[in-house]
């Protein structure tokens, strides 16, 4: 199942994280993990087991943490993520990634601004018709599900459409390298029906497969884990409880998997 190695590798060394609140418990407790390039890894477990914190650590979104995170042998600090091209992240709440009061085009523009990668992008939509045309064609090509014009307000899209848009931006438009090389998905289909969830995930995997992008996804949909993932990491109390390979996963059904945590 391991594909051509074009995705980024990820290494976590003894990661510990305790929220900066009075009497708070550690969320991650000395977690070490290596993810090979091109792997599709699911992180599963009970609520509060530290799944999203692992993703946040890889994305450099944690404020106070110990240990070392490396993406393609580059050390990550809290502020470094903006410097690494090729890492896309889709958060659980789409409102953390999209501005409902802006159009599709303007949302892509904001995400590109976040990366601050070149002056060309800064001029995007400021009368640069050629670049705007490129993005329009790009979005139309990569997001065939989207039947709305680029001027449509994001707030007027349905939940599923927003999740798909969010994933499309993370994969194709957030980075200079297109598609991205490492995609982090944090329960990105949690608000969708099973049918829509499968549709979104199929779209994401179809796009990431083109370059064997490494995918790390936090999910509660165990049927997706057994169907699509190369590896499943089961979290519990801030630690890795089990690390299942594809060979082990194919032998399990969702009930067996659920019984493990």
């Amino acid at each position: 199942m391991l594909r051509n190695h074009k995705g980024y590798s990820v290494r976590l060394d003894h990661i510990s994280f305790k929220p900066p609140r009075f009497l708070s418990k550690p969320v991650l407790n000395d977690v070490s993990l290596t993810i090979e390039p091109g792997q599709i890894v699911a992180v599963i477990g009970e609520n509060g087991s530290g799944k999203s914190s692992i993703l946040a650590a890889i994305a450099g979104e944690l404020d106070y943490w110990d240990g070392d995170v490396m993406i393609e042998n580059a050390h990550i600090t809290a502020q470094a993520r903006k410097l690494i091209d090729g890492v896309g992240i889709v958060h659980q709440d789409e409102n953390a990634d999209l501005v409902p009061h802006l159009s599709l085009a303007a949302n892509i523009y904001i995400r590109k601004l976040q990366r601050e990668f070149n002056a060309k992008v800064m001029r995007f939509l400021d009368g640069n018709e050629e670049l705007e045309k490129q993005v329009r064609t790009g979005l139309a090509e990569h997001a065939k599900w989207l039947h709305e014009p680029m001027e449509t307000l994001v707030g007027r899209l349905s939940g599923g459409e927003r999740q798909m848009l969010n994933a499309a931006i993370a994969i194709h438009f957030e980075n200079e390298c297109n598609p991205c090389r490492l995609l982090l998905l944090d329960e990105h289909t949690s608000k969708l029906s099973s049918k829509n969830s499968r549709k979104v995930l199929s779209y994401v995997l179809e796009e990431t497969n083109k370059v064997s992008c490494t995918v790390v996804m936090v999910t509660h949909r165990l049927e997706d884990v057994t169907a699509f993932c190369d590896r499943a990491i089961i979290m519990g109390e801030g630690k890795i409880m089990r690390d299942l390979t594809r060979r082990e996963l194919v032998k399990l059904n969702t009930a067996d998997l659920e019984a493990m945590f």
Binding site: E61, H91, N95, A96, P100, R111
Partner: peptide, 10 residues
């Protein structure tokens, strides 16, 4: 106008 999470992360 976006959420607190957007302001922090994006």
């Amino acid at each position: 106008t976006s959420s607190e999470a957007f302001l922090k992360l994006r």
